[in-house]
Design a protein around this nucleic acid. Structure first.
Length: 417
RNA sequence: GCGGGCGUAGCUCAGGUGGUUAGAGCGCCAGGUUGUGGUCCUGGAUGUCGUGGGUUCGAGUCCCAUCGCUCGCCCCA
């Protein structure tokens, strides 16, 4: 029998990897709260219609990339491939369309049945923010500012990550633009790659971000949406850019950013890095004014983004340090009971404390070192009430009453929090 | 779904053209030191060489298949 391995495209988060992951989630959760975003947790699986309705049924996405099952009752359920549809469904299910706007943050696992590669897994984790119920450009800018703030807090600066911004315009602008693109690329059909010829039928906007070198000339010569924007759409886009400046968020306009699905309109943006090979997008979002209605709610404007935790974690510089506990060491077997009591008192003071299960003093010291302990406390069997506190970084050691040790440790660890 | 690369100890990897009992470093266990760590010294354990088949007197090494990992393509909600 072959040894059990994690299922393809899944991975275990242990040690340093887990700390990186948690750091990303904790930092974004904290910052989202300062922007007034409230965390929701929706189910990891939903009625399949929640996703098929939002995605349409023609795309690859639905046909080959969703984890879809029939449950025992014969209902078709799907592991969520993203969380925007679930948030919109929850908004409608809970009657929250009556109390808008809602500012929602989420973090959790998502599932896509695709070939794993660097930074892409079948079970992966996303954080995301959705601002539902505000049609103003200010909402787009604030959502983007939140994303930028989080990336900054994680240590990225303008050298590492660039915000690329575009508008898809309103429906009228978009239809006109799509027609112009089809005309353009049809005229250059012979010069296009095989993939892009196929896209011409299925999804002409996607040709714009083709990675094929031979498509580059036709893409470079392609019209941009600017000339096709309606007055209203242009004013909206100008508003987003002006507010981004007010929020202090730098950006670069990139007319090649597109979205495949019909419910997207106006703002589309991506935070992009060059540090991840082919998977350069680290956070992406846009305005999706049509989605809540697809979920059975009233027409409701919304804008949001999502980011892959694995990718962000992989780009962090140094991994966050693990907690350095206090190691409690009974000096002899007779002192063990007393050492247990002290360990427990430390924990009750919110001080991380550990005591080894076996071994002589030397072994216990080695272990204290191995678990990264910051302090050691030696508990002797005699001289009740007096212990030795040792600073394991400096080597300094002092006799102290145990109450004094408790007070000092409590102070030491409170300062770190 | 398609293409490239890689599978040897817990980890990182060595093992010209096939040849006796498969190695190193790190880690782990133990001793040097029965009451004080990081350094040092000594000793020890650990492998279905991914799996199955084939060629051969003989396969970690060559051939075929298969599984897994990985990088990329498609796609990216």
């Amino acid at each position: 029998m072959t040894p059990l391995q994690p299922a393809r495209g899944t991975h275990d988060l242990i040690g340093e990897e887990f700390r990186r992951h948690r750091h990303v989630v904790d930092a974004s959760r904290r910052i989202a709260a300062t922007y007034g975003f409230v965390e929701w947790a929706t189910p990891v699986f939903e009625d399949t219609r929640v996703f098929s309705r939002s995605l349409g049924d023609t795309s690859d996405v639905v046909t080959k990339e969703m984890y879809t099952f029939a449950d025992r009752g014969g209902e078709s359920v799907t592991l969520r491939p993203e969380n925007t549809a679930g948030i919109c469904r929850a908004l409608v299910s809970n009657g929250l369309t009556q109390t808008l706007p809602q500012k929602v943050f989420y973090a959790g696992p998502m599932f896509r049945y695709e070939r794993p590669q660097k930074g892409r897994y079948r079970q992966f984790h996303q954080i995301g923010a959705e601002l539902i119920g505000a049609a103003e450009p200010l909402a787009d800018a604030e959502v983007i500012a939140l994303g930028w703030h989080i990336l900054r807090a994680l240590g990225f600066d303008t050298d590492d990550v660039v915000l690329e911004l575009n508008t898809l315009g309103d429906r009228e602008s978009r239809d006109a633009y799509r027609a112009a693109l089809v005309d353009h690329f049809a005229a250059h059909r012979d010069a296009l790659s095989e993939d892009s010829v196929a896209r011409l039928e299925r999804n002409p906007l996607r040709i714009l971000d083709s990675k094929e070198a031979r498509d580059a000339p036709a893409v470079a010569a392609a019209p941009t949406i600017g000339a096709h924007l309606t007055e209203a759409a242009r004013a909206f886009y100008d508003g987003v850019k002006a507010h981004l400046a007010h929020f202090g968020v730098p950006f670069r306009e990139n007319p090649r950013i597109v979205r495949g699905l019909d419910y997207y309109s106006h703002t589309a943006f991506e935070f992009v890095t060059t540090a991840l090979g082919a998977q350069g997008t680290v956070m992406a979002g846009g305005r999706y004014d049509g989605l809540v209605e697809e979920m059975g709610g009233p027409p409701t404007p919304a804008v949001g983004w999502a980011a892959g935790v694995e990718r962000l974690a992989m780009l962090l510089g140094a991994a966050p340090a693990s907690v350095r506990p206090v190691a409690v060491l009974p000096v002899s077997e007779a002192a063990e009971a007393d050492a247990i009591r002290l360990t427990q008192q430390l924990r009750q003071h919110d001080v991380p404390a550990e005591m080894a299960y076996r071994g002589n003093l030397r072994r216990r010291m080695e272990r204290a070192n191995r678990i990264g302990a910051r302090f050691a406390v030696f508990v002797p069997a005699e001289a009740a009430g007096i212990v030795q506190l040792k600073d394991l970084d400096s080597g300094a050691q002092h006799d102290l009453p145990r109450d004094e040790v408790l007070a000092r440790m409590r102070h030491e660890y409170r300062r770190e929090a």
